[in-house]
Nucleic acid binder design. Structure first.
Lengths: 111, 111
DNA sequence: ATTACATATGCGATATTTCACATATGTAAA
DNA sequence: TTTACATATGTGAAATATCGCATATGTAAT
């Protein structure tokens, strides 16, 4: 994991918020993320794909849905960076986090 | 310190290596950094200026030279990110670090 | 005041990233 | 097997970042 490549992955609002949301909640599917972040589907998917290709996220398909979580083999220092960023910038993504947790706990939710 | 802005600052080879070198050595002047990184002067100065304007680095002039160090008011989480990256990616900037330490300890050095 | 050296910045050219739209793929229910 | 839904990706346009060169500013010695 080249550190410059790693930081490039965090250097975008969509990707960073997606990562912080996933770090906080453990995992999330694409449809919940796009609603929480108020983004269209291709944009959400593209950024998640970039994080997956860099080895930061791991995807798992369950039926129609694809869930993303932090890659278990992510180097500890890199995981710490994400977790520390999440713990110290709650205001940056609290709106999205509230929406995401509402979706995830709702029985009306798609997945 | 918006976290996305912060990570954008780390998402470039010149800036990231400069930061890791400064984190390791405490401080460095522009001329030593440009030699350690084998860059021209305007490029080195430009990237340092960006880090200064974002509040990551603090500059201090001493005679003809300008020394940069991590800004003392940098939020602890952000400082930790830089320090952790430095501690866990030595191979990424070891060449530059060796050159920088050689310059800084040499009596032949300009500053 | 002039010169030499260290650092900073204006600016157009180039490279890289991101976006928006269309479309493709994958899954499951009817 | 048709349909609906979820996700992924091809592609060119737009936005953004970086570079290279020239030049400006700041400091100290002569």
């Amino acid at each position: 994991m080249n550190p410059c490549t790693f930081f490039k992955c965090l250097a975008d609002d969509t990707r960073l918020k997606s990562l912080l949301l996933i770090a906080k909640t453990g995992e999330a599917c694409v449809c919940d993320l796009m609603e929480a972040l108020e983004l269209d589907q291709p944009k959400t998917s593209r950024h998640l794909a970039q994080l997956r290709k860099c080895g930061i996220l791991l995807d798992e398909r369950r039926g129609k849905w694809v869930f993303y979580r932090l890659h278990p083999e992510l180097p500890p220092w890199a995981r710490n960076v994400i977790v520390e960023a999440a713990e110290n910038n709650s205001l940056y993504f609290s709106d999205a986090l509230n929406k995401l947790m509402a979706s995830q706990s709702s029985t009306l939710n798609c997945c």
